[in-house]
Design a protein around this nucleic acid. Structure first.
Lengths: 195, 195
DNA sequence: TTTTAAATTAACCATTTGGTTAAATCAAAA
DNA sequence: TTTTGATTTAACCAAATGGTTAATTTAAAA
């Protein structure tokens, strides 16, 4: 029982490779190299590529929704909630810029995976709707609202290489600054939306 | 010189499969089956999977930006432009819901591909910025504005399976209606943003 | 120290997959 | 009709890839 963390080490390596390359693009050998172990060890701890992938997906999915859940249960005014959700989400994206793209891709590739994960874990999606529930002053549809906010936040990370090249002439620093300034822009935009 | 359209038939089959599965997930055999021909014919017309993929990517990319270019050169007021861009874009998304996700994925997988395509075709991205250029009344940053609009429009299509399950309990009809209502919502939101 | 079971590895295997080749077919020109 | 060149196919090939196995190492228990 040498290194008790081998299983964790594998999971982290798999997370890195799967998020970067996706299920189809990932190679078991690359995951083994990333973890610094023999390829057979992957199958020793996780029986197959599919099971290893499922473990990663479940972990990423859970961490994703935990990261953005945050302080939203409080009875704060909707303006404050908007501020909180933007900061919570963008902080998560700065730390995990490829996670949303990974989740979207793999859910599209095999939608059943998400259903399985949501069945195994208890997860109540309605909490996001209740935050901006029907009892908001503006009468705005909370679903349209939430989808808009997430779309505005996620897109510049998911499509970074595209936007960076087309609108910023591949200038990385300029795009980083754009993302930084965007936080304030998003807050103001959300406030305008619920006016 | 039997069927002069074999090459086109291959390209269309490849487009279908590549957009659905991506470069990594696509199989030459599946493309051949989709086109109703022998696998060797793919290599007869396009030397390799990579070249076939490039032909598809170039075609999809060009078609994408052509579809959304639309009437935007006119000297119409910004409110009218917003209306036009939303209708143009959502119509394109209704017809090609997986195209943006495909482009984003493949550009992330190999950013060089986009540079090559943009070099080979003449393509001026600044046209989108000039539409909502600095001479708008609100003083809004046109880049932040454009990225927001595209994000709001693309996200519910790219993440359809995710959003449909979490917020609409996998009810396809309800989600279709949501997308339909969203067009009007987006117009109003854009107007609020530039107030 | 010896034993035992878990952990780790090198070598190997079967299948998939992109790609090739030589033969067959077809359609038009001579 | 014969010829010629493009088109199409069946069969095949080599490399990549997920997975297995038998042997070795390690670390703790007896």
């Amino acid at each position: 029982m040498k290194d008790i963390n081998t299983e964790t080490k594998i999971l982290e390596a798999a997370r890195t490779v799967f998020i970067s390359k996706g299920m189809d693009g990932a190679r078991m050998q690359e995951i083994a190299d990333e973890a610094g172990i023999n390829k057979a060890l992957l199958h020793y701890y996780y029986r197959s590529k599919d099971q290893l992938f499922r473990a990663v997906f479940q972990s990423v999915f859970a961490g994703f929704f935990q990261a953005i859940k945050g302080e939203l249960d409080k009875e704060t005014p909707i303006e404050q909630k908007a501020e909180t959700i933007v900061m919570q989400y963008t902080n998560m994206l700065d730390a995990n810029p490829f996670v949303p793209q990974f989740l979207i891709n793999e859910i599209n590739r095999n939608p059943q995976t998400l259903r399985d994960v949501m069945d195994s874990q208890q997860f109540n999606p309605s909490v996001f709707l209740e935050i901006f529930g029907n009892n908001n002053k503006s009468g705005i549809d909370p679903r349209q609202f939430i989808v808009s906010i997430i779309g505005m936040m996620v897109f510049p990370y998911a499509a970074r290489n595209l936007v960076q090249l087309i609108y910023f002439n591949d200038n990385i620093e300029a795009y980083t600054q754009f993302l930084q300034e965007r936080k304030e822009f998003l807050k103001q935009t959300i406030l305008k939306m619920i006016q």
